[in-house]
Design a protein around this nucleic acid. Structure first.
Lengths: 206, 206
DNA sequence: CACAAATTTAACCATATGGTTGAATCATAT
DNA sequence: ATATGATTCAACCATATGGTTAAATTTGTG
């Protein structure tokens, strides 16, 4: 790969991620992606056959990295609550650094998640250690051992997902009520982490 | 309003809500909305000037009803935790009955929430009792009174929003891991309610 | 019924959009 | 330096899309 190739391709990738995460696959316009990447529209079709394959490439890349981060963050051998706290930090930091990833995933889901589903199926059939599956197993283990309450693993996963991801989805609306709620503020991300860990470990009762 | 008008207009409304919630404002196609409503494309422009005003009409209607539901569910004078439990039930039932509403709101936010923001501003300037503001006040009250932990009201609101709304967003992906995770299953909605209330009141620790 | 207003339809229009083409430019290895 | 393949561009094409129009049909009302 030449330097030009790398910079052009990654410029397309970044622009596509941004536009797809804002507008979804159908709402995104190739022209808008080209403009944000600072290139000619024909370049998109030189590097990626068409809109569908560009979308799939971006989604697969971004979600793949995401899954391995989950995996990496889930250090075994420590008490579950402690491990979970670490995961939430990693998870929140990832999203804060690149909020487009969570948004792209949400767009996928709103559209029925056909690409995400086929990706997961492919991962499942491979014998890779796979982030979400390992996480679910870890939760079940902790619940079975009586280390935590007898929660349903998938529900807890959905809960953690909701509390973290919602931070990067709901701010355009919620910042009307509290203007300090900016996802580019380190203080706010920090406060959010503390809130999530606190509610998750103790709930809101005293 | 004649009978034909009512049925045609509400058919358009319902179809528009469904399509907008799937594809977002830009991703939605007027033809697709017309098809789902079972009418001619020109009818959309007879009942609503254009795509923008159709979107705004649908969004305002749906979110307005939603806000007043929040208001209605927030019965005063009861212990906060009890009141919150009731709200979560109402909230979950609403979404379960019409998951498109939450999805439309998420789409709005992914797009920067221009319509939602101007709607909220208009509500704020009116002297109506306004759902979200009253809810935030209620949370602050309970926290100040030491009835619950000293949580930031907006963060708690985001947390509740995340735990509930995520149920109707993430299922296309998460159902790969647990096929019983169907939002049209009363048992699953029930289990989700219990999980949310449990985590919110006690956390996951024993 | 007769008449006006509301409703519905098919055909149409201008532009936007995804995608293509062929020529031009650039990098690099010999 | 030049031949080769990679990269970039402007111009182009077919179709999709948002929106319009004028005529036809239905509905409500005296």
């Amino acid at each position: 790969m030449t330097a030009a190739e790398i910079s052009t391709e990654s410029a397309i990738f970044d622009a596509a991620l941004r536009v797809f995460s804002r507008k979804g696959k159908d709402g995104a316009r190739m022209q808008e992606i080209a403009d944000e990447a600072g290139i000619n529209k024909a370049m998109l079709h030189y590097y990626f056959r068409n809109k569908d394959s560009l979308y799939e490439a971006v989604f697969a890349h971004v979600i793949g990295r995401f899954f391995s981060e989950i995996d990496r963050a889930m250090l075994p051998g420590r008490p579950f609550v402690e491990s979970m706290e670490g995961m939430i930090h990693v998870y929140m930091d990832m999203h804060a650094a690149q909020p487009e990833v969570a948004r792209l995933w949400v767009q996928e889901n709103l559209n029925g998640a056909p690409v995400a589903r086929s990706l997961i199926e492919r991962h499942r059939n491979a014998d890779h250690p796979f982030g979400p599956h390992r996480l679910l197993a870890r939760i079940r283990e902790a619940a079975d051992a009586g280390e935590i309450r007898a929660v349903d693993p998938v529900h807890l996963m959905m809960t953690v997902l909701g509390m973290t991801v919602m931070t990067f989805i709901a701010t355009p609306t919620l910042s009307v009520f509290d203007p300090s709620l900016r996802i580019d503020s380190a203080a706010m991300i920090d406060a959010r982490k503390r809130h999530i860990v606190e509610v998750l470990t103790h709930g809101i009762t005293i």
